[in-house]
Design a binder for these strands. Structure first.
Length: 458
RNA sequence: GGCGCCAUAGCCAAGCGGUAAGGCAGAGGUCUGCAAAAUCUCCAUCACCAGUUCGAUUCUGGUUGGCGCCUCCA
């Protein structure tokens, strides 16, 4: 298996630290609002990676944090007239609901920054003792000039950054690239006691402290969006390796961003879609399928038109799945089907093995559908249908799709469907067509097959 | 100014040295009460120029056109 490592900017053979075990950490959300389509990408990408690693036999320990204290949290809590804690509770719940709807498996560890203040303080003390941190009036800062390896992830040099026009000027800091480890208390803000006075942790330090606490001082994979490479992940490396003098992470993986109408999503442009916005128009499985259709490192353009295309593609998969379920029987499958299934599996794995090529893997699924349908059209072999179905289920489960039950029908739909069966028996085509249209308007599709009428969700 | 990415059919998208997976949309055939589903057939020389090579969409250089990061951000 190969993984593209941002640290070396190259495709590398994936070797774990412990045999058959993968420890991975993905930066989670700041829980001050509903997540948007962009936030959904790392969720889907790294959940798929986790599923694939498990499929390949690894024991995966997956940690994802919640940032439940920072400027955005404080501002939003004030705006809404609630405490930071209440705000966090509300949006952690919303996040977990969305993750579930996206068929994302729960992380093994879901640490919150505010539950780890002690670990964070301990780490800052070590950095201070090693001369990598210094105290100012408004907090404690990491001394980037004192840490010679600063910039190794992003490939940035401190000199280059100084020439940039947009580096914030701060009188208290020794260098513009220095970042806060601890922020001194301001009136009305939540705070915790520390050797540097009351205050709260800076943003970057929580990920270092919590990831190492749950996964070890050196772990296998750390993921997040490309925008986090600098400064967040760069800073995590500096803090962590500065503290332990050991390599922090072996493989850094970054997913590309999502654009809307070819523009970066932003509130000022108003091209912002939250997950609840999307769920109004499409089942979130469609969003997952849509994202799997593009390599995770590429930028993707989001639009509802593309969602419709994806919905159609997903439907093709579901149609095959339901058809095979109806046909499946125990028995020994034909050599032709065995061969078709093996081919699909091989190509699925060889695609996924190279830096999680989910788009290619999806292609393997569609090829399985075509070749199996072709065989079933003539053979009508129940054992073949079962083999094809089992394979489809196995592979689609790795991608986290085809999990919805498309057969559940509301009573009113069922009733109309029943009437239509009678109408057809009576050869009353006009009534039969009318009923089909009505069922259609309710969001269900009616098909007449050789074994009778089938009704399913659109 | 610094760092980096991308350019494949109407749309989306894999592939990345040996003459282009897959999906959506479209056209035609089979099947069907009609449809739907399924299936078969058809639908691209990979932005442009130059080079390396027996051979390039795939490597190198350049041109043009998009985009991202450098500030909170997935």
């Amino acid at each position: 298996m190969k993984i593209y490592n941002t640290l070396t900017n190259s495709l590398e053979e994936f070797n774990t630290i412990k045999e058959n075990e993968v420890n991975m950490y993905v930066c989670g959300p700041t829980v001050y609002s509903y997540i948007h389509v962009g936030n959904a990408r790392p969720l889907i990408v790294f959940d798929t990676l986790r599923r694939y690693l498990e499929y390949r036999g690894y024991d995966v320990n997956f940690a994802q944090n919640f940032t439940d204290i920072d400027d955005k949290m404080i501002n939003r809590a004030n705006e809404e007239g609630v405490t930071v804690k209440e705000l966090a509770a509300k949006f952690i719940k919303a996040y977990e609901d969305d993750a579930k709807a996206l068929n994302v498996l729960p992380a093994d560890f879901k640490p919150r920054a505010t539950d780890h203040i002690g670990d964070i303080i301990k780490m800052i003390k070590t950095l201070e003792a090693k001369g990598l941190a210094y105290k100012t009036e408004d907090g404690v800062y990491f001394d980037t000039l004192a840490y010679e390896k600063y910039g190794k992830l992003s490939g940035r040099k401190l000199e280059d950054m100084k020439s940039g026009a947009r580096v914030a000027v701060d009188e208290n800091k020794k260098a513009p690239s220095d970042f806060a480890l601890w922020k001194s208390e301001k009136p009305g803000e939540p705070s915790w006691g520390s050797p540097w006075g009351k205050g709260r942790p800076g943003w970057h330090i929580e990920c270092s402290a919590m990831s190492m606490k749950y996964l070890g001082e050196t772990f296998d994979i750390h993921g997040g969006g490309t925008d986090l490479i600098f400064p967040h992940h760069e800073n995590e490396i500096a803090q962590s390796e500065g503290t332990t003098d050991k390599p922090f992470v072996n493989y850094w993986m970054h997913n590309g961003h999502i654009n809307v109408n070819n523009e970066k999503m932003s509130k000022s442009l108003g091209n912002f879609f939250t997950i609840p916005d999307i769920a109004e128009k499409f089942d979130l499985e469609v969003l997952r399928f849509f994202m799997l259709g593009v390599h995770y490192r590429s930028q993707v353009n989001f639009s509802f038109e593309l969602m419709e295309q994806s919905n159609q593609g997903l439907n093709r998969l579901y149609t095959a799945k339901l058809r095979w379920e109806d046909m499946a029987q125990d028995g020994s499958p034909s050599d032709e089907m065995k061969e078709a299934v093996q081919k699909a599996k091989d190509s699925f794995i060889s695609d996924m093995d190279v830096d999680l090529n989910t788009a290619g893997a999806l292609g393997a699924l569609f090829e399985l559908v075509r070749s199996a349908n072709f065989l079933l059209d003539t053979s009508n072999n129940g054992a073949d249908a079962k083999l094809a179905l089992d394979t489809l289920n196995e592979l689609s489960d790795v991608l986290g799709i085809l999990y919805r039950d498309m057969r559940v029908l509301p009573d009113d739909v069922k009733e109309l469907a029943q009437k239509r069966v009678q109408a057809r028996a009576d050869k009353n085509w006009a009534l039969s067509d009318e009923l089909r249209d009505r069922i259609n308007e309710m969001g269900y599709i009616v098909e007449d097959t050789s074994d009778g009428q089938k009704v399913k969700k659109k």
